[in-house]
C-alpha cells in the first residue's frame, strides 16, 4: 500500500502545478482560518457606522468548543481547490498516456486507482490535521478559560470533516476518470452542486424525503452551517449518523465506479 502511495507522490512532487495549487490551498486555509477576528472587527466597524454597537467579545467565534465547527465548516468551502488538484493529477495520466504506460510497466489497474485513492486519503488527513492545529492555537488564544471538557466537545466533527474531504476528492477522481479531460472535468466539478441544486428543488416538490440522499446535499447535512447560532438560532451541533452513512456509501460508490470504468476501458 505504502509502495503505491509513494509512486503517486513521486509523480506529484516534481510537478510544479501540484506545489502551486497545494501551496495556495494550505496558505488560504491557514490565513482564512486565522482571520476570523479581523472579520468580526470589520463587522463591528460597519455596525458602528450605522450607530449600533456590536460587542465582538460576545461572539465566541474562536472559543472552545465553537472554534472547531466554525473552522471546519469554513474550511469545507475550500475543498474545491483540492478537487481541482486531483482532477489535474488524474487527467494528466490520460493526456500524457502515462496510465497506459504504467499498466504496461506492470501496475494493475486496481493498483493505479489505489495509488490515487491513497493520495486522496493523505491530502484529506493533512487538511484535517492542519485545521486541528489552527483550531487548537486560535482557541487557546481567544478562549477566556481553557477547560478540557470544553476543548474536547464537538471533536466528532473532525471525522466528519475527513469524510467530507475524502468524499469530495473521490468524486473529483471519478469525474476525472470518466471524462478524462482536465478542462471539462473541472467545469463539471464546479457546476455539479448547482445542477444538483436545481434537480433537488424540483424533486423537493414531489418527494422531499429523497433530498438527504443527493450526494452534495449529503455533505451539506453532515456538517451544517454553524453561524446562525450567533443569531439565536438552533443549529445541528452533532454529527448525524444517518448523514455519515449516506456520505460513506456515496464515497464507496464513487470509487467503485472509478474502478469499473478503469477495468473495462481500453487504455
Amino acid at each position: 500500500m505504502l509502495h503505491l502511495l509513494k509512486i503517486d507522490l513521486k509523480k506529484m512532487t516534481s510537478y510544479r502545478t501540484f506545489w502551486v495549487i497545494g501551496g495556495l490551498y494550505f496558505l488560504t486555509l491557514g490565513l482564512g482560518a486565522a482571520s476570523g477576528m479581523e472579520f468580526l472587527k470589520w463587522l463591528a466597524r460597519t455596525f458602528e457606522d450605522f450607530g449600533q454597537k456590536l460587542n465582538i467579545n460576545r461572539i465566541p467565534l474562536y472559543h472552545f468548543p465553537d472554534v472547531w465547527l466554525n473552522l471546519i465548516w469554513s474550511a469545507g468551502l475550500l475543498k474545491i481547490v483540492l478537487g481541482v488538484l486531483i482532477v489535474i493529477s488524474v487527467t494528466n495520466e490520460y493526456t500524457y498516456r502515462t496510465l497506459r504506460q504504467n499498466v504496461i510497466d506492470g501496475l494493475s489497474r486496481a493498483e493505479f486507482l489505489t495509488s490515487k485513492i491513497l493520495t486522496n486519503l493523505l491530502l484529506s488527513l493533512i487538511s484535517v490535521a492542519m485545521i486541528f492545529v489552527i483550531g487548537l492555537i486560535t482557541g487557546m488564544i481567544y478562549s477566556p478559560s481553557l477547560e478540557i471538557g470544553q476543548m474536547i466537545t464537538d471533536l466528532e466533527f473532525f471525522p466528519a470533516y475527513f469524510l467530507e474531504l475524502f468524499f469530495f476528492l473521490s468524486f473529483a477522481l471519478m469525474l476525472g476518470i470518466l471524462i478524462q479531460r482536465a478542462g471539462l472535468t473541472i467545469i463539471v466539478l464546479l457546476l455539479f452542486p448547482a445542477i444538483e441544486g436545481i434537480i433537488a428543488a424540483k424533486v423537493d416538490n414531489y418527494a422531499p424525503w429523497l433530498i438527504p440522499y443527493f450526494p452534495m446535499r449529503s455533505i451539506w447535512y453532515l456538517i451544517e452551517w454553524p453561524f446562525p447560532r450567533y443569531a439565536f438560532q438552533e443549529i445541528q451541533d452533532y454529527v448525524k449518523l444517518s448523514s455519515a452513512i449516506i456520505v460513506i456509501v456515496w464515497t464507496a460508490l464513487f470509487n467503485y465506479f472509478s474502478y469499473l470504468k478503469l477495468k473495462r476501458a481500453d487504455i
Binding site: 509512486i7 516534481s14 500524457y96 497506459r100 504496461i104 510497466d105
Partner: peptide
Amino acid sequence: AVLEHPIFYPYLSGQKNLELNAMIK
C-alpha cells in the same frame, strides 16, 4: 515494452522517469 511511441511524464527528468519506472517494476 514500448508500444507505439515513447510515453513518459514530460515534466520529469529522464532520471526521475526511470526512478518511477523502477518503483512500478
